[in-house]
Nucleic acid binder design. Structure first.
Lengths: 203, 203
DNA sequence: GTATTAACCGACCGGTCAGTCGGTCGGTAG
DNA sequence: CTACCGACCGACTGACCGGTCGGTTAATAC
């Protein structure tokens, strides 16, 4: 029926998908390889045929996802336009990702202490360095063009990320309903703050 | 030498202190009762003399810390002044807490999925409801006094919290050196945004 | 002094979980 | 057809960990 290769790839993909939904829901240590295997409709032996270890699976899952996000962010960095426009574009694309994919982005901050050595480093350099660095680039352009006040761009990038996470609902059971409302909140707050000013609508 | 009661209280405090530094550094599941006992210079049997279970210890640690923070926040809520002044005061007090105490505040978001039932509920209602609700109160006053643009105060409260966490360095190895620089960043960004405006210094 | 009790010890138990290994089955190559 | 190999199975193991329990010491009560 299926070729061996196709079948193998499909199984690996099923394992990754199962791992995503489980690791998003619970800490690394609280997800067992049996749980992942069962969710992927395979046995533990089968899982270990595809991945050398639990850590290996976690890293494959994360670095695969990172690559997708890196490409997504790259598009916004490459585009012309104002800093605000590019951040809007990037955020809109990001908010339209499925819930699970967005959750993966901040999994690192929760689980990173579980790892050590180069595994830990690769996670940090992907999600804590490379992705925010792309946002930083856009913000630095904004500073150069005098659209944004001069300030440490890295801190501003992280501030932006934090605001996005708030509207996603990471911080509580607080969520703005639709993507446009979320966008408006983040961009409005980031660029204009909450103060009532004579010239317009903040927040 | 020491009375039994004093000795007991001191031991319990030592266990809580050991638990704090370990739980801040690693996930709930990755911290063993043996590690806590060793760090508290006691044995596991001794630990279980003071606390009924690992979960019980974790909750005692968290709810004790919550009570301290609740009182700290309460002061800022009770004070008169503008919304900005009160938030400044609260944030300054908060930033002057020792690193470990501040880290405890967002431990819940990392570990909450490990618990269930009323243990989980008590953690959520403390750190995800009661504390942000106090900030929300201050912001609502700001909206009432037309100092802050009308908007869902809960989302604004969480946005503020998120910005504070950024400058604390939760988000990367990014930290502004001193408390005043951190304060300026958070308050400036929250109230004024990052845009360059004719009338002054944002961010 | 004697009895009682709280604080603490440390060996132990039962369960869990990452990882292993010998084996089966079906597709593939020659 | 046959030999092979990759995909997968499932029982097993060894380490670890939360929690227990009988015992020891020292403070306290009488």
């Amino acid at each position: 029926m299926l070729t061996t290769q196709t079948r193998s790839e499909a199984t690996a993909a099923r394992i990754i998908a199962a791992a995503k939904s489980l690791f998003v829901a619970r800490n690394y240590s609280d997800v067992t390889t049996d749980m992942i295997a069962t969710a992927a409709e395979i046995t533990k032996g089968g899982l270990y045929h595809h991945f050398a270890s639990k850590e290996d699976l976690y890293l494959a899952m994360m670095l695969g996802d990172f690559e997708d996000k890196r490409r997504l962010f790259e598009q916004a960095v490459a585009k012309p336009g104002t800093c605000r426009d590019r951040l809007t574009q990037l955020t809109r694309d990001y908010l339209e990702l499925p819930h699970e994919e967005r959750e993966l982005t901040h999994l690192v901050r929760r689980d990173v202490n579980t790892f050590s050595g180069k595994e830990r480093d690769s996670l940090i350099s992907a999600y804590q360095k490379a992705l925010p660095a792309q946002i930083e680039t856009i913000i630095n352009d904004g500073i150069r063009d005098e659209e944004v006040a001069a300030c440490d761009a890295r801190i501003l990038a992280w501030s932006f990320v934090a605001l996005v996470e708030v509207v996603i609902g990471q911080y509580a059971e607080v969520t703005l309903e639709n993507t446009e409302a979320q966008l408006e909140h983040v961009l409005g707050l980031f660029f204009g703050g909450v103060s009532i000013t004579p010239k317009g609508e903040p927040a």
